[in-house]
């Protein structure tokens, strides 16, 4: 579904953020990407739907080359859901309109169909009663659940999560993770940048560990938590799991 082949990316001439990254996410697979801050994991996931350009290698999404100038990027992006660290709901639109906007303007769905879909998804994330509110009236956890529903409204073939819980207060993290766990169990293809090792342990098929722009470890979940091969991954795990 997602293929990342020898991807290189620089910020300016001197700083290389991604160094020869190669990995893939198969249909229905859940892959967690972790690593210390500044390791390039968020950058990598933003390259998958070309929110960030790459300078070398290639990324192929469902058979379509992402970094091909001829690719219709808006169309490609509409098929992949993305959830951001800071939610990025549109603050001037009601929740229901946040879910309707791209359905109508990008997919060309009729207003009533878009409303029905939006209502169904809001019900699914437990926020049906908040449809008429504005994003600022909701808590962080609620906003992030809306953001997930907004992405799902486009019937995506895969979902990308960029640190979906790291801007949340601790008591709100689980309500968001619960929605993500449900999604994973339903067979959604997911690439998730997160430090939530509990989530990884529960639903991930594979775990990728990145450091300084490189994919240091790319292993099945059991192998990763059981016997991480690299020193750096071992150190990272011991730090993050000791509390």
């Amino acid at each position: 579904m997602i293929e990342i082949n020898h991807v290189n990316k620089w910020y300016g001439p001197a700083f290389q953020v991604l160094k020869d990254c190669t990995t893939s996410v198969a249909k229905g697979e859940v892959v967690v990407v972790c690593g210390p801050s500044g390791s390039g994991k968020s950058t990598l996931i933003k390259c998958v739907n070309a929110l960030e350009p790459i300078q070398g290698g290639e990324i192929v999404l469902d058979g379509v080359k992402v970094n091909d100038p001829k690719t219709d990027l808006p169309k490609l992006r509409s098929r992949v859901g993305m959830v951001f660290q800071h939610f990025e709901l549109f603050p001037h639109l009601r929740i229901i309109d946040n879910l309707r906007l791209a359905q109508e303007k990008v997919l060309g769905r009729k207003h009533d169909d878009a409303t029905a879909k939006a209502t169904k998804l809001l019900e699914r994330v437990g926020l049906k009663d908040h449809a008429r509110k504005y994003p600022a009236e909701l808590s962080g956890g609620q906003q992030q659940r809306v953001a997930i529903a907004r992405a799902l409204a486009m019937d995506p073939i895969a979902m990308l999560f960029d640190e979906p819980t790291s801007a949340l207060d601790p008591e709100m993290i689980s309500e968001v993770l619960d929605v993500m766990v449900d999604l994973a169990r339903e067979g959604m293809t997911m690439m998730v940048v997160t430090h939530e090792m509990g989530f990884a342990n529960k639903v991930a098929d594979r775990v990728i560990f990145m450091d300084r722009g490189e994919i240091v470890e790319d292993a099945k979940k059991a192998d990763f938590f059981g016997t991480p091969r690299s020193d750096r991954a071992q150190k990272f795990l011991s730090k993050i799991l000791q509390h």
Partner: peptide, 29 residues
């Protein structure tokens, strides 16, 4: 914030749509 046009793009909105429906209404307000 840059995240707003990024979120609009991620949903498949074109540059013009992202400006018209997401960025300009907020900038105007």
């Amino acid at each position: 914030s840059k995240g707003q046009p990024a979120a609009a793009s991620a949903l498949g909105l074109t540059y013009a749509q992202s400006m018209r429906y997401v960025v300009l209404p907020q900038a105007f307000r």
